[in-house]
Simulated scan of single mutants.
Amino acid sequence: MTGLDIEITPQARDWVARQGGVMMIRASTRNGCCGGSTSVPVADLGEPEDLAGYVSEMKEGIRVYVAEDLRVEHPLKVRLERFLGFRRLFVDGVELASGTQRKRGE
């Protein structure tokens, strides 16, 4: 696969490079307080334990693995968030997908 439309901010790129130069983007399910669920995109350092179901390519000197089941319909932007000395990657640009699929008009 080539041509993933992913932007990695300079701060995120530098931090990932210092941590080994590999990251993955995958969906993570979040449950609501009153039922229901949604899938949100997350970025983690390192490569997946099982490479099946992921595609990868180099972006800005970083090896990026993206889960094949993650709907990527818009450009993604990976940025670094900092809080009290903690750092984590954050993904912008992926639409949330409901855990329950409904047809239009329902």
Rank of each mutant, 00 (worst) to 15 (best):
I8M: 06
G53H: 06
K103G: 08
D14K: 14
A97T: 13
L70F: 06
V40P: 00
E68D: 10
R82L: 03
D92T: 13
A27D: 11
P48C: 09
M1H: 11
K77T: 15
P10C: 05
E106N: 09
A43Q: 01
D14Q: 15
T2W: 01
I6H: 00
G105K: 04
S39C: 05
R102P: 00
G35F: 02
R104N: 07
C33V: 14
R13P: 02
A43L: 06
G32S: 08
K77E: 13
V72F: 01
V22I: 15
L96S: 13
Q19D: 05
G61Y: 03
V66S: 05
V66A: 09
E7G: 04
M1D: 10
V91R: 05
L4Q: 04
E47M: 10
L96F: 11
G20D: 05
I8H: 01
V91H: 04
G99E: 11
E49S: 14
K103R: 12
T2N: 11
V94L: 05
E68N: 10
A43R: 00
G32V: 04
V55I: 14
E57R: 07
L96Y: 10
G61F: 03
Y54Q: 09
G61S: 03
E7Q: 12
R87K: 14
D50F: 06
D92C: 08
L80W: 03
E47K: 15
V16K: 06
R26A: 12
G35N: 11
I25H: 00
T29K: 13
D5K: 09
M58N: 07
C34V: 12
R88M: 04
S37I: 03
Y65R: 07
Y65M: 06
E60N: 12
P41T: 07
D14C: 11
Y54N: 09
V91G: 02
N31Y: 13
R30E: 07
R71D: 09
C33D: 11
G35H: 08
C33N: 13
Q11S: 15
P48N: 12
E60F: 01
R26M: 09
V94F: 02
L4R: 02
V64Q: 04
L51Y: 03
K59G: 01
A97I: 14
D5G: 02
Q11T: 11
